[in-house]
Amino acid sequence: MIRILMIEDDFELAEILSEYLHNYDMEVTIAEEPYIGLSTLNTNSFDLVILDLTLPGLDGLEVCKEIRKQHNIPIIISSARHDITDKVNALDNGADDYLPKPYDPQELLARIKSHLRRQNASLNEENNKETPKDLVLKEYEHEILFKGSVVNLTAAEYDILRYLMLKEGGAVTREELIYNCESINEDSTNKSIDVIIGRIRAKIGENPKEPRYIHAIRGVGYKLTL
């Protein structure tokens, strides 16, 4: 169920809207005073706030400002104040929408659904963002970053680490590294590859006994995991 906090001193209007929204699986908590509303919001979880501007004790614009300081939640202003200055100030102080009274409850419902869709889409986008990898290949700059800093690599070290990154998760033989890395002499031995791998590990602070990135595969070669 969607939980809504309505800060509104017109209790009769608040009750009408609450009953209407209840038909659409929305539970409305009514606070007739601004300080009670702020306290309720700070001690409970809500999906959206409907806020009147003309309130006893504290102007709704100040309430809006206080809410936005502490909560990333959609705020719909529901007010009989039609002055464009009030609307601009409300939006500048963190409100997401401004609905002048009187209005049809259907319009309020539509706006609530719209803001909740945007909120959910924003949260999903944030959750779906990929966590930056520790090792990042920047081929155009001919650089490899480790945790945001450029790793000082020789040509051979760069070519080997680059190839392992391109084959991330897959097993790579020493012979494959020799024949696919331009800076590696084709007459190089498997032992020379192991030495270069050791230098790479040292430069990214990896313990070869407990590898996090470059794993030795017995009888095969190496595998890089990020």
Rank of each mutant, 00 (worst) to 15 (best):
S149A: 12
V172C: 07
T131M: 10
L5K: 02
S122A: 14
G219K: 08
F11R: 15
F146I: 06
D187R: 14
A156P: 10
E176T: 14
L224K: 05
K129Q: 15
Y20A: 11
A171M: 10
M165T: 10
E141A: 15
R3N: 14
A171G: 04
N72Q: 12
E125N: 11
N128L: 12
D83E: 15
G221S: 10
E168R: 10
K65A: 14
K167F: 00
E157S: 06
N152M: 01
H142A: 08
D86T: 00
I36W: 06
L21Q: 05
H215L: 11
V150Q: 07
I217S: 05
C181W: 00
Y222Q: 09
N185A: 12
Y213F: 15
L153S: 06
L55V: 05
V150D: 12
M165F: 01
K69Q: 13
Y98D: 03
E210Q: 10
V136F: 04
Y98A: 00
T154G: 15
N180W: 00
L145I: 00
E126W: 04
Q106R: 13
T154M: 08
K69V: 07
A202Y: 09
I4L: 13
T173G: 12
R3K: 15
K223N: 11
E32V: 05
M26G: 07
L48W: 05
I200R: 08
K87W: 02
I84P: 09
I73P: 04
V150L: 02
I217F: 02
Y98R: 00
A216K: 14
I193A: 03
P34K: 09
V28E: 05
L177M: 15
I4H: 03
K209L: 15
N72F: 09
A155H: 10
D92M: 03
Q70L: 13
D187S: 14
R117F: 02
G205L: 04
R111S: 09
P56R: 00
H142G: 10
S79P: 07
T29L: 06
N42A: 15
K129T: 08
H115I: 01
E62F: 01
R117V: 14
I217N: 06
G205Q: 08
T154E: 12
L108E: 05
E143G: 00
Q70A: 14
S192P: 00
V195G: 01
I36Q: 13
I77M: 07
N128Y: 11
Q70P: 01
E15G: 00
